[in-house]
Design a binder for these strands. Structure first.
Lengths: 228, 228
DNA sequence: AAAAAACTGGACTATTTGGTCAAGAAATTG
DNA sequence: CAATTTCTTGACCAAATAGTCCAGTTTTTT
């Protein structure tokens, strides 16, 4: 995984799997366990309050560690945030890997929609954190958006355009289509509270997501001339 | 306009048009001018940083007033926030007023989509502020969501269902359809940075919105069996 | 024009915040 | 087991913050 984020520089080494031979540090397995705890706590706090309103103390409390200890692993609040953003973008990049002109449009779009809904289901906090970052002007991710993510979208849009040119689907703006799928799926994580309130439920079930994915698939596919 | 929000109580009277005869206060036109300034500044700050990370000082600076003066008009930070939420929900409620079973589905959905995109264009800050509030669990608006907005959605969903029953459009889940329109249009305001980055632009033009609205209309209408 | 009310804004405060430091406890290594 | 390195934690601090207070100024009312 490349270090895409991280405007600051040192520290924040992932002690994970990789070859990663640095001079002295072959340190405790404790390191990893604690970093993980901290990141999980931070994801919760940041996604609930945003960067500015989250206090290191609260992260520490949630992680069950003293504040100084948190700041031992991540030298400051921003570093925690960067590490999270890095994780999120990494996970996102791994997904929906390839898409080929030869592929079947209907099948590909269907699995894209389902994968994205699934991501909203399994990682709602990350999704909300991402949304907060973007809404607030993407101070950290701006670069990433206009490089990596832009290319990601353009590549897929190119394939969709080929499908259209080959008459395999209706002529819709490919970039807009990707945005539509992105937004409508993302919504299920970000606006969970609103949806639950409107549908008068207190919790999503797995079948709610299934239902949502099926609905989106049917409307969008039909909308693209890829009939029922 | 009803005071729907405002968990706190006194103060925060709108000195606007209404009959509103209170004993002594028939105060300066200054009051209104300053309140307006403060609210505009607050909308900007809150939508950029969220409630917790916004400081009264920054609101004051942006409004060109000393902090104490801001706190003279709104006795504390929450009150400013409540007032904004109230405005937003009011504006939202006024829109898309009526929808009748006799109406034409295609026409109605089209104008709904266009109106919502237009709202994203003309009030992006309010839209983002709303999104922030929802993502963070709607601490202030939760009540409103499960009452007013819920009824709003249910009423429209009912009409859509009647259209479906009458065979005037494809059988899609009406609530999901409303959510789809909501999310895909809202997106243009909330994720502006992302969209601009991906499309490699630095600013939206009015025709971008037009294009977006047309795209959404065509895909969603077709998706509902309301062919071009 | 005098009285009353609305408004302005500087000074102040109690609390909270991110971050440092240093001293010691645990673990790892030679 | 001694030396070295990693880890833990309470004490501390400077800066920032929401909100108060109040003395004075301007505007409105009578």
């Amino acid at each position: 995984m490349t270090r895409q984020i991280e405007p600051d520089s040192p520290e924040t080494k992932r002690t994970t799997s990789s070859g990663d031979k640095r001079k002295k540090v072959r340190p405790g397995r404790i390191r990893e366990r604690n970093r993980e705890r901290i990141l999980m706590a931070a994801e919760k706090e940041f996604s609930q309050n945003g960067f500015g309103a989250t206090t290191v103390q609260k992260i520490a409390d949630r992680a069950g560690l003293p504040k100084s200890n948190v700041l031992y692993y991540f030298s400051n609040k921003k570093r925690i945030y960067y590490a999270l953003m890095d994780d999120i973008m990494g996970r996102w990049n791994e997904m929906f890997s390839k898409i080929q002109p030869e592929d079947d449009p209907a099948t590909t779009l269907t699995s894209f929609i389902h994968a994205k809904v699934e991501l909203s289901r399994t990682h709602p906090l990350a999704s909300r954190l991402f949304a907060l970052e973007i809404i607030q002007g993407a101070p950290v991710l701006k670069d990433h958006l206009s490089t990596t993510m832009r290319e990601w979208v353009q590549a897929r849009a190119g394939v969709i355009q080929q499908w259209i040119d080959a008459g395999r689907m209706a002529p819709v703006d490919p970039v807009q289509l990707i945005l539509l799928i992105w937004s409508s799926t993302q919504h299920y994580a970000d606006f969970q509270v609103q949806i639950l309130a409107i549908e008068d439920k207190s919790e999503y079930t797995e079948s709610d997501f299934q239902h949502a994915a099926d609905f989106l698939t049917s409307v969008i596919l039909r909308g693209c001339g890829l009939a029922p």
